[in-house]
Every structure is written in C-alpha cells, then in structure tokens.
C-alpha cells in the first residue's frame, strides 16, 4: 500500500480567520484504500481542514493535488465532482426526502446523461436513472438501512442519520471520503457497525480521511494517524507510534488519560 502513488497530496495548507491561524502549513498525503486518522484537541483545526479541502472555505495558502493536478480553490461542487465527498460533523440530511432519495442526490455527480436527454426521457437516460436507483439501494443495504429505505429522514435516529450520510457520500462514487467525527453520539453497537463499514469502504480502494476523538474507535481502524495542535501537525505515523509519541501524549492523549492503555 505504501508503495502506491499518493491519491491526494496536501502541502503547506493554511487557513486564517482574521488573526487566528486555524490550519498552519499542513502537509500530508493519502493513498487509495488507506484510512488516515486526523486527531487533535478541540479547536485544533480538524474541521477547518475538511472545510478547506472540500471547498467550503477558501484556503489562505497551500496546495492540494489530486492525481498531480492542483484542485485547491475549486468551488465545492467541482471538488465533489472530482471524487472528494464528505459527511458532516452534524448530520445534514435533505429533510422532507426519503432515505433513498437522499442517497440518490449524492449520486448527482455521477449522472452522465445531459439534462436535455433527461427531460426528453431517452432510453439511455432512463437506464442510467435505473442504474443509479439500483446503486442507491445497494449502498443503503451496505450501510444497513434497508428497513428505512423509504422512510422520511427526520424519522431516523441519530446513528441511522450517520449511516445515511455515509451512504449518501458513497453514492457520489468518491475516491476519497472525509468523515468528521462519525462515531460521536453513536451507541457502542452502532460504532462497531460503522467501523465495519469504514473498513469495507477502504477495501473498495477508497481513501478515507477520518477525524475522530474516540481513540478506541480510531486507532484500530487507521493505517496512519496525523495529529494537529493549534493548526500545526505535531506527529504523523502508525497508530502504535502515535500512541507513544511524547508530544502527542502531552498535547492530547495525556489529557484523555492514557488512551493507549485500553486500545
């Protein structure tokens, strides 16, 4: 895995809010099928990193290359169209739509038929719609929401909402998927299920960038972990090296009370 070309290469990524530098010269790369953990104390700049990568915020400086091509600064829908999909720290389903419809919206970037053909209802356009429907169903099964397929999304539990976010992001056929604290608020059994799903995603060759506070959840999943503190990367390595890195323990793990012990 480490021998492969990086899918995405981030260099010197910086985001300032007025005087505050929320992300400061961040460098990292991810390879296909790799699960990269992103940890750090509250306010370390993790969500901001996601927002800059996904195009929600304009970076103050830096570069981000996908397959060697610069994509930093593209509008969100363009970045999503390149295969970078995200879930939100707070679930953001399209309320009023069913689970299946939400997942279909996620597939928007994969539609190849032109709008004209869709409006005319050509056979090819209809076949594509069918294929997208089928794939949405498949993804719903994959995350385990089969029972709720036609339910309106506001009727889902918080944990189910998480799973929906995951299915919706997968519908866009991402090459990289960004999870912002997916385990937060989940029951232990839901956590386990999510862990299986994330592993399944990585097995499909999709790169996973995972923000997570819950080390019990993250460390077994991640191939590699980078640690942020005050916007700067203070460590980068395998879960085992991170667990014992004194700087990390000092800045973060220490206060969590020797997480390494119970992993």
């Amino acid at each position: 895995m480490t021998g492969e070309q990086p899918l995405i290469e981030v260099r010197g990524l910086t985001k300032r809010f007025g005087g505050l530098t929320a992300v400061d010269g961040l460098d990292f790369e991810i390879r296909p099928g790799e699960v990269l953990g992103l940890i750090g104390p509250n306010g370390a700049g993790k969500s901001t990193t996601f927002n800059v990568i996904s195009g929600t915020y304009q970076a103050s400086a830096g570069s981000m290359r996908l397959d060697g091509e610069e994509i930093l600064g593209l509008p969100p829908h363009r970045i999503a169209a390149r295969g970078i999909m995200r879930t939100f720290q707070h679930n953001m389903p399209f309320e009023g739509m069913s689970v299946a419809e939400n997942v279909m919206v996620g597939a928007q970037t994969t539609v190849r038929s032109t709008l004209g053909r869709i409006l005319l209802g050509t056979a090819a356009a209809r076949a594509e719609e069918q294929a997208i429907r089928a794939r949405a169903d498949e993804l719903i099964d994959f995350v385990g929401l089969s029972e709720e397929r036609d339910a309106e999304v506001t009727s889902l539990s918080f944990g189910q909402g998480r799973l929906l976010e995951t299915a919706r992001a997968l519908a866009g056929e991402p090459r990289i998927i960004l999870f912002d604290e997916p385990a937060a608020g989940l029951t232990p059994s839901e956590c386990d299920r999510l862990g299986v799903i994330i592993r399944g995603i990585a097995e499909r060759g999709i790169a996973v960038l995972l923000i997570e506070h819950d080390m019990r959840f993250l460390l077994p999943l991640a191939d590699r972990v980078i640690v942020l503190n005050f916007g700067q990367k203070i460590a980068d390595g395998t879960p085992d090296t991170i667990r014992t890195d004194p700087a990390v323990v000092d800045a973060y793990l220490g206060e969590a009370g020797g997480v390494g012990a119970d992993a």
Binding site: A80, M85, F88, V105, G106, Q108, T109
Partner: peptide
C-alpha cells in the same frame, strides 16, 4: 412532476431547495 419525482437531477433541485450548502458539498452545481 416526473422530473422532480423520478430523476436524480430533479432530486438535486429539491436538495438545493432544502439545504443549499449540503447540496453543494454533494457535488450539485448551485
């Protein structure tokens, strides 16, 4: 009606109506 009910594009229009920001992050061109 068919466009909104039966096509992914139609769903995307609706998604924009519901939550513009999330829709954009799903790859919808606002």
């Amino acid at each position: 009606w068919l466009f909104f009910e039966r096509t992914v594009w139609g769903k995307s229009f609706e998604a924009v109506a519901i939550n513009r920001r999330a829709a954009a992050l799903m790859g919808i061109n606002l």
